[in-house]
Design a protein around this nucleic acid. Structure first.
Lengths: 217, 217
DNA sequence: CGCTACAAGATTGTCAACAATATGACCAGC
DNA sequence: GCTGGTCATATTGTTGACAATCTTGTAGCG
């Protein structure tokens, strides 16, 4: 009876299953294209099938899960071409966010940016790609949030969720963090200088380089 | 009792309810912030509550419906600020699409563009804002599809769905179609000239003008 | 008169059983 | 040996009932 106790009683079964599943997918615990059988998930999470089903539907609309009628759900595999498309969209949207962040960011957020830049430099000189990848993620998130553009933030979070696997692969590539770092520092500089145009250009340059790296797979 | 053509049950039931509901919302048949009670909708559409529920969840993820735990669903009202944010995102994404369309469009699509341009000019000289608004929509859709950027297309369709009310209001504004027309013609010219840079610039200029118009509400 | 507590009604969330459908193995016929 | 059909099984889709939760109206109390 592997029924796990659900934590907060206020937490609804569907939300619990959703969080649990999403984390499992994002952490790569599910093999690519792995089959997600409702009954199995229901039992292992200690919720009913209906809850798992609802969670799977949500994840489908988030683009993390692929679902075929009467055939079941699988974790969606993002091909390189799709990853490129997604990154092109990120280029457009993060460019917008960076420009807005340059004018809208609070001084505290600028300080945070500076700190992140230093941490990233350190991670690179330490040769720690995992930490660097996480800081990278944090940096992009900070810029998004500083923009105050809620709509773009929502879209970007969805897009980013689909890229976990590729991002991870990219970070481990030798030499990649070094190039990425200088591009990131340029973005930080532009925002700190409160120059929207330069910030947008810098972000686009960075993501353009990401696209090149993706294509080199 | 209103016997519908395709009621009852089956997978079609959910799709039927979804289409029906979406149309009702997009056509403005639901008052802003109107309450959407699952039971009522189920009865009036002749489907089960589960189907309505599934449809409502879908519409929620599309951003057309707002849903609060244990409190029900309501049609989401998009404030002017949100409409501006959405249009800013459209500016970024449609700019991308226009640039790609300039290089990727087939000759047949270019001809379609030309035709749409003529039809739009006619609608304006005829003083027919409703037709113009529809053609406007068609034009943006054509550009999206010609870009071949599936990811951006998906995002844009979702964003556009949320703007129906504002778009309608905008089209009826005196003088607005005239200004909009010239901007649209510029976009068409740039794409036909296969000039990505000019196409992106023209789209951004157009949507920037839309934002101004929205703010003047 | 205003405020809190409580109960009734309405509405959504969850569940377990049932139906529909696709998958894969097996077998007959050529 | 291969093709085509048939059936058993696994899995998803659907349904109606039940539980949890919120809202509203009302009465009691200060």
């Amino acid at each position: 009876m592997p029924k796990e106790a659900r934590p907060g009683s206020g937490e609804q079964a569907k939300q619990y299953a959703l969080e649990r599943l999403r984390k499992a997918i994002l952490r790569g615990e599910m093999a690519p294209a792995q089959r997600l059988v409702e009954n199995e998930l229901a039992e292992s999470y200690g919720v009913t099938r209906a809850s798992v089903r609802a969670a799977l539907l949500d994840l489908t609309s988030e683009g993390l899960v692929e679902r075929i009628r009467n055939r079941g759900s699988r974790v969606r595999v993002v091909t390189v071409e799709e990853a490129v498309e997604i990154t092109e969209c990120r280029m457009a949207l993060e460019g917008l966010c960076a420009a807005k962040a340059a004018t809208e960011a609070t001084d505290a957020q600028l300080d945070e940016l500076t700190g992140l830049g230093k941490a990233m430099s350190k991670a690179v000189t330490d040769g720690d790609p995992v930490t660097y990848s996480e800081l990278n993620h944090d940096l992009h998130a900070l810029i998004r949030n500083a923009s105050g553009q809620h709509t773009a933030v929502g879209l970007l979070e969805r897009l980013n969720a689909q890229l976990v696997r590729h991002r991870f692969q990219l970070a481990l590539r030798p030499g990649r963090p070094q190039q990425s770092l200088s591009e990131h520092l340029a973005v930080i500089e532009a925002i700190r200088a409160r120059d929207p145009q330069a910030a947008e250009t810098a972000v686009r340059a960075h993501l353009s380089s990401v696209i090149d790296a993706l294509r080199a797979d």
